[in-house]
């Protein structure tokens, strides 16, 4: 049985080089991960799909140790500056401590399995891991 893969969100593109995509305003360059009727920045209405850089630096983070039932803690929630586009993601593949995670830290996109459903379909999530 071949396993098909589905991304956690539709702005994650899987394949040999997983990356995020966004709707970019062709007028001012503002990028949105969801659909917009008009650009929130300049009100223009034409958008094109663009790839977001897969490497960036941590511009803010928190280590969540208390969350709603069913959310595994602790985890590092962060805002990553990926070549000028801010991305929300977890910092993964490192200890979730302030000694390990730091502001300005260089990170890169990484994917991981969220498991298979009854049809054998595998969901793939993403996060950013430290560049050693």
């Amino acid at each position: 049985m071949t396993t098909t893969q589905v991304p956690l969100v539709d702005y994650l593109v899987l394949g040999d080089k997983p990356h995020l995509i966004a709707n970019e305003c062709t007028s001012c360059g503002a990028k949105f991960f969801d659909r917009r009727n008009a650009c929130a920045s300049c009100f223009a209405t034409d958008f094109k799909k663009v790839e977001i850089a897969t490497e960036g630096e941590v511009r803010s983070f928190t280590i969540v140790t208390f969350a709603a039932p069913g959310v595994p803690v602790p985890f590092v929630a962060a805002i990553i500056n990926c070549g000028g586009t801010s991305v929300r993601a977890n910092i993964i593949n490192c200890d979730p401590t302030p000694e390990v995670v730091s502001l300005g830290m260089k990170v890169r996109l990484a994917t991981y399995s969220l498991g298979n459903d009854d049809n054998g379909s595998e969901a793939i999530g993403f996060g950013f891991e430290p560049i050693k």
């Binding site: 956690l8 969540v64 962060a78 977890n90 969220l114 298979n116 049809n119 379909s121 969901a123």
Partner: peptide, 22 residues
């Protein structure tokens, strides 16, 4: 993993994302 990973909502997410995406 439930019966089926099904994309829903504005971001086409197959699971609740709080805790997975920040």
């Amino acid at each position: 993993p439930g019966k089926e990973w099904k994309a829903t909502g504005r971001y086409g997410s197959v699971a609740n994302t709080d805790g997975l995406i920040g």
